[in-house]
Simulated assay, not measured.
Amino acid sequence: MSSLKVRVDQKKLERAAYVLKCVAHPVRISIIDLLEQRERLTVSQIQEVLQIEQSLLSHHLTNMRDKGLVDTQRQGKNVHYFLTDTSITNIIDVINGSQVL
């Protein structure tokens, strides 16, 4: 057993745990999936697909923005959300069984 060791750097493990805690909700995973498909979406576009209350969606988006998973860009009257790190979309592949953990 002496050759057994943790293969991931401690900082990477801490970041992974931080991100996984943030996305550990079906709505947030759905938001990631939608932003992978369209790259930039407004709150109303996301709300139309998810069919949830705007206040609940805003809560999730604010949480994800505070944690650095999404950011915003204003275009005229609209605020578009986008993923800050598209590698998080790998979680969708894992959930769908396309990749093995």
Rank of each mutant, 00 (worst) to 15 (best):
L4I: 08
V6K: 15
V8N: 08
V8P: 03
D9Q: 09
D9F: 11
Q10I: 14
K11V: 10
K11C: 13
K12V: 08
K12W: 07
L13I: 10
E14P: 05
E14A: 13
R15Q: 02
R15F: 10
A16M: 11
A17G: 02
A17W: 03
V19C: 10
L20K: 13
L20T: 09
K21S: 15
K21Y: 07
K21C: 14
C22R: 02
P26K: 14
V27D: 05
V27G: 01
R28Q: 09
I31E: 08
I31Y: 07
I31S: 04
I31Q: 06
I32N: 00
I32K: 02
D33M: 01
D33T: 05
D33W: 06
D33L: 06
L35W: 08
L35G: 03
E36P: 08
Q37C: 09
R38P: 01
R38I: 02
R38W: 14
E39Y: 15
R40F: 15
R40S: 14
L41C: 08
T42H: 04
V43W: 06
V43L: 10
V43S: 11
S44T: 13
Q45M: 02
Q45S: 01
I46Q: 04
Q47R: 15
Q47P: 03
Q47W: 12
E48R: 10
L50T: 05
I52A: 08
E53L: 02
Q54E: 14
S55M: 09
L56W: 02
L57Y: 00
L57P: 01
H59N: 09
H59W: 13
H60I: 00
H60W: 06
L61F: 02
L61N: 07
L61D: 05
L61I: 04
L61S: 00
L61V: 03
L61R: 05
T62N: 15
T62V: 09
M64A: 09
R65C: 04
R65Q: 11
D66I: 09
K67A: 06
G68C: 08
V70P: 00
V70W: 02
T72D: 04
Q75V: 12
G76T: 07
G76S: 10
K77Y: 14
N78C: 14
H80T: 05
H80Y: 15
H80D: 01
H80K: 07
Y81N: 04
Y81D: 00
Y81A: 03
F82H: 15
L83R: 04
L83D: 01
T84N: 11
T84F: 05
T86Q: 08
S87Y: 06
I91F: 05
I92C: 03
I92L: 02
D93Q: 07
V94N: 09
V94H: 07
I95W: 01
N96M: 13
S98K: 15
S98Q: 14
Q99L: 12
Q99H: 12
